[in-house]
Write a protein that binds this DNA or RNA. Structure first.
Lengths: 226, 226
DNA sequence: TTTTATTGTTCTGTCTGACAGAACATCGTT
DNA sequence: AACGATGTTCTGTCAGACAGAACAATAAAA
């Protein structure tokens, strides 16, 4: 199951991965179906997850995510200085371009939308924070992939340009641009993205968004990461 | 190491527990010191934690918490309907009493402050969200313990009263009161707490705070948990 | 109410995965 | 250049973890 990791740990984390929406609790049977693990195996793994606060067992037996995830998630999130830096940037980008603005990071073999400022226009590219999307589709996915994997065929071009564009890849009516936010020592921290209705977010608008996003990304790098 | 759980899983979670503040990265040596694990053991466990996004390895080798924790932490947090329910309650309690108001849940053998509205007064009981505190000190700790462990000597009294009080237990100048928020089927969900300067938060003020907090808790139970 | 089906809990033999700890490699300091 | 500190790789041993059966409790159907 594991290649150079520890199989039992990966089983335990696969259990946590079963939880997908808030307000959710899951019975043992559902976890067994989703993970393919035996119930006795799950129960034993859950003893450890509960003891560290990652899961909680309800009185009716259903499992729920536990408070440790909130605490560690808060630690992680604070590293990006959410309240003081990135969110205002997303607001400015959204207002300046009229489209939605987001910040994505890699999450295993997917990307996750950490923060979002949706456009105020009635017709807009709307997504919720926390959503996970594939790496092989969308400007943010290509950019993240390019900065993670030097052997990716698009890496050289994307790094040379310092942006990625996608037209209708995930949704036929959507266009998006993504620029990198770099930290200390040019470490890739995440993707700053503007996305909108393809007919409105045309080439001229995209070029303007790229320019604005690159400027905001440069300022973020200086302000947050030195 | 483990009693009925899985030792490898608990080792992995012990690694995650090493991270205590935001902006933090930890070198291998520090994790080995904090956990008492061998470096080779840590490295193997970290392969699994990285592959699921719980950790990230920086180019200089240091470890950081990864985006999965944010995602799962957001799922957990949303279960409490933060934005729509509990936070306004804390604001009202704080404004009505003039003291700080918080919401605590159990986190293993500690309690964690999930949400907080600090008093606007210059002299106030100030804490940050996310802080972990012991169960054996403070009104919230006693209340949580009473609702978790029927054999606790204080359980009967606290449940009969529907509140706990502490005077100078954790900090000699602080007084606090805690009332339970119950969910479906009277399941204990967390502690609603008001805390402040002991000389100002006197018996009359505490009694008033208890009354207000019980009313808010009852309303929360109806609104959120049916 | 009884019977059947479903879901959760407990147990244990087997074997292989994980660990301890040494050896080695790399980097930083003197 | 030498030494110390930190990170990486390797492997023999055995005890822990799993698979899966049996049992218990609960829910649904007859």
């Amino acid at each position: 199951m594991s290649d150079k990791g520890v199989a039992a740990v990966e089983r335990a984390l696969a259990i946590l991965d079963c939880f997908e929406s808030d307000q959710e609790s899951l019975p043992l049977k559902t976890i067994a179906q989703k993970t393919g693990l035996y119930k006795s195996t799950i129960l034993r793994l859950c003893v450890s997850l509960e003891s560290y606060g990652y899961l909680r067992r309800r009185e009716d037996g259903d499992f729920q995510l536990g408070p440790t995830l909130w605490r560690l998630g808060a630690l992680y999130r604070n590293r990006f200085d959410v309240a003081t830096h990135i969110r205002p940037v997303l607001k400015r980008l959204s207002e300046a371009t009229g489209e939605s603005a987001s910040f994505y990071v890699r999450d295993g073999d997917a990307r996750i939308c950490l923060m979002r400022h949706n456009s105020s226009q009635a017709i807009r590219h709307h997504l919720e924070e926390g959503v996970r999307l594939p790496l092989n589709l969308g400007a943010a996915g290509h950019l993240i992939q390019a900065y993670s994997d030097a052997s990716d065929p698009k890496t050289q071009e994307i790094k040379a340009n310092s942006y990625a564009i996608s037209l209708g890849e995930r949704d036929p009516n959507t266009a998006s641009i993504a620029v990198p936010v770099l930290g200390r020592g040019d470490a890739f921290m995440g993707a700053l993205v503007v996305s909108g209705l393809r007919t409105r977010f045309d080439e001229e608008a995209r070029q303007k968004a790229i320019t604005l996003a690159l400027e905001e990304a440069r300022r973020l790098s200086q302000d947050i990461y030195g």
